[in-house]
């Protein structure tokens, strides 16, 4: 009898999400576990977005800050650099300057930055607030309006502010990042609440909350894995949006990406260490199911893209 390769087929499918207007990118859409092309269909590559921000990245460590020297003082230049020089497929603009503990920039200030960036580049844009529940609820509706027609991703909506932000994303036809804090049941609950207010599940990107390698990555990994299994094996519709790994901001604040070589020579090259740390965190999360990644260092992105090449 001929050998029949055992294959696992699932009833569910991840929702494919397309973002951007002039240039579009699609991620998600698979009906099998990450990269299991031998068992099902994986129609789209994971999408990596380069992270930029509205204010100069003073708190980024040297390794990643120096890459953007000369452009990071201006979000428009920075975005152009990512698109033209780094060939970014997508750009994630984080409005950290709006945080009350940062520069406390207003919603109008943020709108100006967003407009500048949108006018400067063609690739799909992800626009994120400062992760301050109240301030995001002020800023994101304003920038969602400015970005109307560009089919962006807006975020992050959380349990405490999702109504305002989701309404703005809905009114201006954007996609939405729904974030919960490392709890699969609350993640599901947030997606239910969003769909109950009429927000299409096909426009949600689930962010189960990221963590860096060595700093709880296994929790994120496990939650993502379980979300994906619920989507595929249990055909749980609200768990079928693609997932986000917001990698850069978690990786580039830990000791391993900052401790100098003269202090910890046994840890090896600081630059290589940081780049590999970001690439390892990103590739791990892709294996757990993340289809959208936000990253900072071009070489980490390059490694991750090569990894995707090999698996696709």
């Amino acid at each position: 009898m001929a050998f029949a390769e055992p294959k696992e087929a699932f009833p569910g499918q991840v929702v494919p999400v397309t973002i951007g207007s002039e240039i579009q990118e699609t991620f998600g859409g698979e009906n099998t576990l990450p990269f299991h092309k031998f068992e099902g269909s994986v129609p789209n590559r994971p999408l990596i977005a380069y992270e930029i921000q509205d204010v100069p990245p003073e708190d980024w460590p040297e390794t990643v800050r120096k890459v953007y020297e000369g452009v990071s003082d201006d979000p428009v230049k920075w975005a152009r650099y990512c698109e033209d020089e780094l060939k970014a497929r997508s750009i994630a603009l984080r409005l950290v300057g709006t945080h009350p503990d940062s520069k406390n920039l207003s919603a109008d200030d943020a709108a100006t930055v967003v407009k500048g960036v949108l006018d400067a580049v063609k690739v799909p844009i992800i626009i994120m607030g400062s992760n301050h529940v109240e301030k995001d609820a002020e800023v994101l509706p304003r920038v969602a309006e400015v970005a109307k027609g560009r089919n962006c991703i807006i975020g992050k909506a959380q349990e405490k502010n999702y109504k305002t932000i989701a309404a703005a994303a809905m009114a201006n036809d954007h996609k939405l990042i729904a974030m919960s804090e490392l709890d699969i049941n609350l993640s599901k609950q947030l997606n239910i609440l969003l769909t109950q207010m009429g927000f299409s599940r096909e426009k949600i990107i689930t962010d189960p909350m990221c963590s860096a390698l060595g700093y709880g990555l296994e929790y994120t990994y496990s939650v993502m894995e379980r979300i994906r299994l619920a989507a595929l094996a249990q055909n749980d519709e609200v768990m079928q949006p693609p997932m986000l790994g917001d990698v850069g901001m978690y990786v580039w604040k830990i000791k391993e990406t900052q401790a100098p070589e003269d202090v910890l020579p046994e840890w090896g090259s600081l630059e290589e260490r940081g780049i590999l740390w970001e690439a390892m965190t990103a590739t791990s999360l892709m294996l757990a199911g993340a289809e959208l990644l936000i990253m900072r260092h071009p070489r980490a992105v390059e490694y991750t893209e090569r990894f995707i090449d090999e698996l696709m």
Binding site: K188, Q189, L193, Q196, D236
Partner: peptide, 12 residues
Amino acid sequence: GNTLYAHSYLEM
């Protein structure tokens, strides 16, 4: 354990 628990599981 056939479906994932959420506070609104009855409303789905």
